[in-house]
Amino acid sequence: MKRGCAIRTVAAGGALALALSGCGGGDGKDKAPAPGKAPAKPAAEATAPAGGWPQPENGRLTAKMCGLLTDGDYARYGHQRMPQEDAGPAQDDSNSVYCTYMLGDQLTLGLQKSAQGAKIAFKQGLDRHKDRLKGKQSVLASNVVQGADESWFDYSTLGGSPSEYEVEARRGGLIVGIVLSEVPQHPDKDPKGMLAALAALVLQRIPDVGKTDTGIVHQVKYVVWGSGGAALQIVYSDPVNSKSVTLKNVKLPWHKEFPMPDTGSQPTAALSISGAMGSPTGVLGCEVLVDGKPVQKKDPSAGMTFCDAMYHS
């Protein structure tokens, strides 16, 4: 995941070999060792530093968590990680940390207040990735990381090189992203398996992070009703995706419900809905509710209706 995105996994140590083989490229089939030869043993897994692997402090991710992956971890899967360039929390209010290295390697972690919030952020990140790669080569694969609720792997768009890859994984409210630079890289190694195994290591080393919701998921409901059977047009704001949605020739009465997680970075949400009739004799009313409680309601009026509210979570 790139800097500025809201962000992003874990198997037990003994399951990493499964993560690597199960997420390989090509036809995805395991290769048997040559007759008479024992399977090659991977390099020893890195041991935890004194005091253990870095964990969140007071519920916040810190730059220390860049140490969740070591140079040895990358070397174990055939990649030489370059020296670190930058490490620190996001500049906004999101609970995120970014770790960048020379030549393009990245590790990012983001923690939402709820699994629902992280699920929305994960989908938004994947949608942005698909938009950036539209018309370009893609090897998009889903569910590649053991221990994650959902994950994806593909070429990265950072440097525009087809040999730069990334993985993003979500477990509960936690999102982990890793970008693998193109150099120096061993051509006989499978980047999907490498990134899946590295993401699984991160999840293993912070086993409880993201598993418990710390925030509320509010339920927003828009309602429009009136005469005439149908509205010519209904327009509503989607505070989760920060966009306006327009519907045409909508049968009445109409309603729309969706979750609005407490993310911490957007404590105030703009909620609005409007409707218009095709005939000036038709009447429309509207209502905005949060968690079943009205925050604004307009009685039916001729021609059109409009409801808006600023909701503070």
Rank of each mutant, 00 (worst) to 15 (best):
Q84I: 13
F153S: 06
W152I: 06
G72L: 08
G177L: 06
E150G: 07
R60I: 02
G160V: 06
M65H: 04
A141Y: 08
A141E: 01
P184A: 01
V179M: 04
V176F: 00
R81T: 04
G59Y: 08
D93Q: 15
S96C: 13
A90N: 09
S94H: 01
G147D: 04
A115H: 07
C99F: 09
D127Y: 10
F153A: 07
I120M: 11
V97S: 00
D105N: 15
F153I: 01
L69W: 08
G125Q: 14
G104R: 07
D105F: 13
P83L: 06
H129C: 09
Q55E: 10
Q80Y: 11
G72A: 15
L107D: 02
G125H: 09
K130S: 06
Y165L: 07
T100G: 12
G160I: 03
N143M: 07
Y98P: 01
R132I: 12
R81W: 04
V145G: 06
A90V: 10
N143P: 03
Q185M: 14
E85T: 15
D93E: 14
S114G: 07
K64A: 15
Q146L: 15
E182G: 04
D93W: 12
R128D: 14
V167K: 07
S151W: 03
S163D: 15
Y98G: 00
L174F: 05
K119I: 03
H79R: 09
D131T: 11
Y74G: 00
Y101R: 02
G88F: 02
V145Y: 00
D73V: 03
R128M: 12
P89M: 13
Q124I: 10
K123Y: 12
V176M: 02
G117Q: 03
Q124H: 11
D105P: 00
D86K: 13
M102W: 11
N95P: 14
V179C: 05
Y74E: 00
G88P: 03
K136P: 05
I175Q: 12
V183D: 13
K130Q: 15
Q55G: 09
G72C: 09
L158Q: 14
L61P: 01
L107P: 08
L61M: 01
P83R: 06
R171H: 08
R76W: 02
L109V: 05
R76A: 14
R60S: 06
